[in-house]
Design a protein around this nucleic acid. Sequence first.
DNA 1: GATGAATGAGATTTCATTCAT
DNA 2: CATGAATGAAATCTCATTCAT
Lengths: 239, 239, 239, 239
Amino acid sequence: MRDAHAQPRKVQILEAARTLFAEDGYDATSMADIARRVGVVEGAVYRHVPSKRDLLHQVIASFYEPLIDSATDAIASVDSPREKVAVLIRRQLQAFTEDRLLCRLLISEARSFDDYYDSEPAALSRRYTALFMDAFADGVRTGEFRSDIPATVARDIVYGSIEHLAWSSLTGHATLDVDATTDQLLSVITIGLSSTASPAADGDVSLGGLVDRLEAVTERLEATAPPHESTTRTPNEAR
Amino acid sequence: MRDAHAQPRKVQILEAARTLFAEDGYDATSMADIARRVGVVEGAVYRHVPSKRDLLHQVIASFYEPLIDSATDAIASVDSPREKVAVLIRRQLQAFTEDRLLCRLLISEARSFDDYYDSEPAALSRRYTALFMDAFADGVRTGEFRSDIPATVARDIVYGSIEHLAWSSLTGHATLDVDATTDQLLSVITIGLSSTASPAADGDVSLGGLVDRLEAVTERLEATAPPHESTTRTPNEAR
Amino acid sequence: MRDAHAQPRKVQILEAARTLFAEDGYDATSMADIARRVGVVEGAVYRHVPSKRDLLHQVIASFYEPLIDSATDAIASVDSPREKVAVLIRRQLQAFTEDRLLCRLLISEARSFDDYYDSEPAALSRRYTALFMDAFADGVRTGEFRSDIPATVARDIVYGSIEHLAWSSLTGHATLDVDATTDQLLSVITIGLSSTASPAADGDVSLGGLVDRLEAVTERLEATAPPHESTTRTPNEAR
Amino acid sequence: MRDAHAQPRKVQILEAARTLFAEDGYDATSMADIARRVGVVEGAVYRHVPSKRDLLHQVIASFYEPLIDSATDAIASVDSPREKVAVLIRRQLQAFTEDRLLCRLLISEARSFDDYYDSEPAALSRRYTALFMDAFADGVRTGEFRSDIPATVARDIVYGSIEHLAWSSLTGHATLDVDATTDQLLSVITIGLSSTASPAADGDVSLGGLVDRLEAVTERLEATAPPHESTTRTPNEAR
DNA sequence: GATGAATGAGATTTCATTCAT
DNA sequence: CATGAATGAAATCTCATTCAT
C-alpha cells in the first residue's frame, strides 16, 4: 500500500527524470539512473513511459505547459503590447535562471534531434514563443514596435538573448542578478525594437536614444489627447 | 599508395568528424562512423586523434581559429567601436548561417560537458567574444555605447540573438536572408546598445543632439496638442 | 526458468571466474569468456559484478575469508605458539596445493597492480598472515621463538616457502606429497625459528647456541683432523 | 650515422623493455611504449625482436645469464657447501632488492604462461637454482646439510623466502635492510637445513633435545679428536 | 504494477603485428 | 634499417528495452 502522501509513480518518474536530465543531461542519464532514483527497477519505468525519448518529451512538456498557461494569464492582464513583451521577458529570464533544468534541457538537449522541428517539444516551444510574437505583432499594429523587424527575428533576438544570459550565469561560476539583468535586457531590447528606433537606425545614431524618449512621450500624447485634427501619418513606415 | 590529390589522413578525419558531428550530433556520431567515412578501420583513427572528445575539440578549434583571426583583422581595419561591432555581428551571422556545423556544434554539443567552462572550446569562445566585448568597452569609453549595460550582458544579447537566428534558419526549414537579417539585427542591437538609448545617459552627450531632439519633439507636439492649451501631463511614464 | 538445482547467477559467475582466472590468468581471461562459461551474454555479467577487477577481488575474497575463519578457529584450539604455527603452515600448504587457483591468483595476478598495497586482497592477505605473526610474536614472548628475527621476516620466510613449494608442484608436472612436504617444511622452519637456534639466545636458551658452536667445531675437526680410525658412520641418516 | 657512444639498437630495445616491463609489468607495457622510449616507431622494433613474448624472454635472459655466471664464479671460490649456500642467498637477496625489475618480472610476469615449464626463462631459472641445489646436495654428502630434506624442497624454501622478503620490501613502502635481513634469513635457513637440525625436529626442543645434541657432538668428538691431546683451539669460528 | 534477469547491439579504446615505401 | 600507416581482432563496459514470473 502506498503512502498516502506519496505521489503516483508516474509523477515520481517524471520528477526523477527532470532532475537527472537537468543535472547530467539526457544522454548521460540512463533509464537505470531514473529507476534507481525512484526506487524501482528499470523494467518498472516502462509501465509508465513508453521510451526514454518520450520521457524527455513529457518532462519538457511538464515545464512548458504551466509556463505557457501562466504566461497567457499574465499577459492577459496587461494592455499594451510593450508591457506584454516586458512581462514575457521578465518571466522567461526568471524561469531560466531559477531552473537550471529548463535552461539546459531546452537549450542543449531537446534540440539535438533530427526531427526536432516536428517534435512535441518544438510544438510547445512554438506555442510558447507565439505569445511573444502575437504581442509583438500587436505592437507593430499599434505602432509601438518597428514594422521593419519580422516577428520571428524579434523572437529570436529576445529568446536568444535570454538563453545566453541564463546560460552564462549557469556556467559562468557567477550568480546572475536577475532583476538588474532583466532591466538591462528589457531596456536594450524594447528600445531596439520600438518603432521610434528605426528611423534613426542609419543616421547619426548618437541622438537616437534621446529622440526615442521624446518620441515615446509624444506617442503617449498622441494616444491620449484627442487630436486636433485627424492624424493621417502612419508612423514607422521608414525604410 | 595514396592518391596525390588526397588530403592527409588527419585532415580527412577532421573533415569527416566535422560533417558527421554537424549532421548527427556528437553523441550520435560514433568513431566507427567517422572511420567508415574516411575509409579506414576504427583503430586507424586513433593514430591521428587521441580521443573522441579531443576530436571534437579539434573540430571546434578548426572553426574558431580562422574565425578569430579573420575577425581580428577585420575589426583592425575599421575605427569606430560601433563599426567594429557591426563587422563582428555581420561576420558571425554569416558564419553561422553558412555552416550548420559551426552552429549546431557550438550551440548544442560543445556545451554539454560539465567541465565546459575549463575546456579548450570554451577558451576559444571566450577569446572570440572578447573581440566583441573589447569593442563594446571602447564604445562605452567613447560614449557611443551605453555605460549601464555590462559588456557581458551585451555579449550575451548579441551572440544569443545570432545563435537563435541561425538556429531558426537551420531547423525552420526556411533559408535565412542573411543580409536582411543582419541589417535587422544590427539595427535593433546597436540602437538598443547605443548611449543615446540609456535612460541614464551621461551628460557629455553632445549638445547638438539635444537641439535636434527638441526640434523634433516640438514639431510633433505642434502637430498633436491643441494650439492654446497647457499640457499638464507628466511625461516619462513609459512603462 | 532456472533449474532448481542451479546456483544463483552470482555464484555461477564467481565460480566461472575462479576457474578461468586460475587456468588462464587474470589478463588472459576475458569477461566474454566468463559470460560464455556461465551461459549468458557479456552484459549480463555486469548486473552482478561491477567490474572485472572487482570480480577478481571477490574471487580472492571468497577464498581468503573461509581460510581466515577456519584458520582462526583452528589455532584457537591449540595452546603453544609453536603448534599454532605448525597448524597454520600445514593448512596453508594444503590449501595451496589443493587449489591451483588460490596459488596462482594470489602469487601472480593479484600482486600485479600498482595499488596492490591498498587493495582489498592485500588487506585480506594481511589479515591472514597476521594470524601467523601474532602466533610468532607470542612464541617470542614465551621464549619458544627467536627474538632476533622480526615477525615480518618470519612471515615472509614461511609464506614464501609455502608459495614456492606449491608453485613448484603446480608447474613441475609433479604431484606434491603434501604430508611429507609439510613435515619437511615444518621441520626446517620451526627449527630455524626456534629460540634454541638463535645465536644470541637469551637466558636458558643460550644452551642451544652453545651446542651450535660445539657442532661447528666438531665439523671443522672432522674436516681437518685425520680420523683416528676409519669413520664408517654416515651422519644424518636419522629419520 | 649513429653516435659512437650509442648502443646498438638491439641493446637499446632490450634496455627499454627491461625498464618498462619492470615499472609497469609485461601486459601493461605496449610495443609502442617500448618503441617510443627508444625513439623509433613501432615497426622498427620488429626488425630486432620477433615478438613481444620473445622480447620478454630476452630481457629475462639478459638478467639471468650474468647472474648465473657471476654466481658460478663466486661459489667456485669458496669451499664448504654451507658457505656456497650463504653466498648464493646473499647475492640473490641483494639482486632482488636492488632491482625491482628482476623481482617483479620473475615473480609475477614470467610465470603467467601456460607453457612456462618449457619456456626459456624457466630453463634459465632451473640452471640458476641448480647452483643452489648442487651446493645443497654436496652439503648433504658432507653431512653439513640434512639428508631428509629433498634439494627441491630446500630450493623452494630458500628462493621462496627470498622472493617474499624482496617483494615485501617492494610493496611494503619500507626499505629493506639487506644486510640485516640477509643475516636473519641465512641464520634461519642454514640452521633449519643443517644436519644437526634433523634429529631434534620432532622431539621437544627444550632441555631433552639439547642433551641429545650434546650427546651427538660428544660422540663425534670422540670419533675425531686424537685421544689424549688437549684441544686448545678457540671454538666459535664458525662462519 | 513490479521484479530481476537477460539481451544484443554498440561504444570507445588498445595493441601486436604487417607492409609498402 | 626505418617510417608511418593500417589492420583486425578483441576487450571492457553501457544501455534501452523486453519478458517470464
